[in-house]
């Protein structure tokens, strides 16, 4: 029983680590991967998601509804940003980086001035499960399931729908897509809005596990970028899944047996090494591997 509990606990830790990385990265993947915009306001979009969730929770809405509201609200805010600001920076990734940094300063300090230093937290839904000497949080189990579901939904959206087709066409060659009658401006707006909405969605989901403060977004930025970069751009969704799994595989045992500090160091080192070995990210390596299999098979 003791051994069984240990195994379950380690698997659970692995799942939470991977789900955390994936949730942090979700919105960023869509924006960075599809539009090549380094969105430094990503953390602040997540913060807005958490704020929306907390405010609507206080207004008496049930938590799942709050999460949906956050998705919609932050998605709308993203669309507004795209129209007003980001639109002017396509093809100039690095200027976009500075602009989004400016936006992030505005959002976080503005939030501090409007809402004060804290909002009340949301109680974590679900209790805990006892497994031997260990106990697992039901909510994190739900988060793991939700992050898998979102990835599946995204894959479906981009591979099976007309929007997905148009979006992929626009990302590959905007001029050609336009020539074929795709409204690329609309696709950009929807993609950015989707990315922002997903950031808000993740922010709302992570809100019960965090203190809701104006600068809370900063904690998600570094893990998000590392996950996306390690994943690579060949196929962003597969890449992000691959990299969050790979990074958690390194982090979980090190963190559990050697402590949180070495766990973090292992994560960062693993990111460096993976990129050295697979310069185009995990996704490109996955793609090559599946190609090779298809050829030999």
């Amino acid at each position: 029983m003791e051994e069984f509990g240990l195994v379950i606990s380690v698997v659970y830790q692995f799942g939470t680590n991977a789900a955390f990385l994936l949730l942090c990265a979700l919105g960023l993947i869509v924006i960075l991967g599809m539009m090549n915009i380094i969105n430094l306001a990503h953390g602040e979009l997540m913060m807005m998601g958490a704020y929306t969730a907390s405010l609507s929770y206080q207004a008496g809405l049930p938590f799942p509804v709050c999460v949906a509201v956050s998705f919609l609200v932050v998605g709308f805010v993203g669309a507004v940003f795209e129209r007003l600001v980001v639109r002017r920076f396509y093809g100039r990734e690095l200027s976009a980086l500075v602009v989004t940094w400016g936006i992030s300063l505005l959002l976080s300090q503005g939030t501090l001035m409007v809402f004060g230093p804290f909002l009340p937290s949301i109680p974590i839904p679900g209790g805990s499960l006892d497994v031997g000497a260990y106990s697992l949080s039901v909510y994190w189990l739900i988060l793991i399931a939700v992050s898998i579901a979102v990835v599946v939904a995204l894959a479906w959206l981009y591979n099976r729908t007309t929007f997905g087709l148009h979006a992929r066409a626009t990302m590959q060659d905007a001029a050609m897509a336009r020539a074929l009658g795709v409204n690329t401006g609309r696709i950009y707006m929807l993609t950015f809005s989707l990315g922002a909405g997903l950031a808000g969605f993740s922010g709302a989901l992570l809100a019960p596990t965090a203190s809701i403060m104006p600068f809370m977004g900063q904690q998600f930025v570094a893990p998000a970028f590392i996950t996306v970069v390690v994943g690579g751009a060949a196929n962003v969704i597969a890449g992000a899944v691959g990299s969050s799994v790979l990074l958690s595989l390194v982090r979980t045992p090190v963190g559990f047996y050697l402590g949180a500090f070495l766990g973090l160091v292992a994560l960062l080192l693993a990111a460096l090494i993976i990129i050295r070995l697979m310069p185009n990210g995990v996704s490109a390596a996955l793609l090559r591997w599946s190609d090779r299999r298809a050829q030999s098979g």
Partner: peptide, 22 residues
């Protein structure tokens, strides 16, 4: 005794380690 870096915000591993130590 465990020291947690300031950038860590997700604690499932720290919690498991505490449970292990009882």
């Amino acid at each position: 005794e465990e020291f947690v870096p300031l950038s860590v915000s997700e604690f499932s591993q720290v919690i498991a380690r505490i449970q292990q130590a009882k």
